[in-house]
Design a protein around this nucleic acid. Sequence first.
DNA 1: GTCGTTGCAAACGGTTTGCACCGTC
DNA 2: GACGGTGCAAACCGTTTGCAACGAC
Lengths: 136, 136
Amino acid sequence: MLSETMLRMTKQRQTILEELRSVTSHPTADDMYEMVRQRLPRISLGTVYRNLEILAAEGVVKKIDAGGSKKRFDGNAETHYHLRCLQCGKVEDLAIPLVSGVEEKAASLSGYSVVAHSLVISGVCPDCQKNNKKAS
Amino acid sequence: MLSETMLRMTKQRQTILEELRSVTSHPTADDMYEMVRQRLPRISLGTVYRNLEILAAEGVVKKIDAGGSKKRFDGNAETHYHLRCLQCGKVEDLAIPLVSGVEEKAASLSGYSVVAHSLVISGVCPDCQKNNKKAS
DNA sequence: GTCGTTGCAAACGGTTTGCACCGTC
DNA sequence: GACGGTGCAAACCGTTTGCAACGAC
């Protein structure tokens, strides 16, 4: 799976990986573009997309799809769960233990060869709750 | 939440709802367009999108985002889990019991006002596994 | 020197929207 | 008859891609 040897470690790729790992949020490709642009002002959005895609394929990084129109990226490639705010769209880590046995159960029930599972809780974050109260 | 009284039940809306409920798969908006077009050949794709959106907002139907670029719709609005094939993209229901207590646990841990949770298992479906063997 | 990678800009694909007409209530 | 819904086409927006120049190995 890892063909790490074939990957050239360009300044761009390096920087994208560093920036993503330096952060515990779950930036969109565009967020990443803005972050990396501080350090490499001439980088292009296409390069950001290409590298995030490649790093995710290598398993170095994780692409997460918690709903909403934009995909997000996570510097932590281990399986863990997420909270999503329906109002502001932010995605946070959720520190609860993994549900045990779901992948096995699903596999034996369906015949799928299971690769991963994801669990997303959606609701309204404390910040948005506060803002809602203020506004009303 | 339900303002059912304000909704006009047009031929289009009715037909979309009937078609979605007549099926246990999880069609995309475009799939729905094709299905409904059999009965209402002059319906437009925009109308399908608008109505699926409205029906989902009313809670009559569910919008599911199991990854992949297209959103899918589910005639069954009750919480249940899904299996997604990474290869052909199909999404099926997964008949395992709901994980109990996650929403409460997440709420008390994070302060979110929790609305829902979703669990998606991804892997390769039996059909694609078979095709892969044949091809190799 | 090779060949993977980049920047750029144009293309893409799914979804949304403005508008004038239509049909449900 | 009012006003929400429709068909149509154009706009939108996140993402992908073709291409010639570039730079890591």
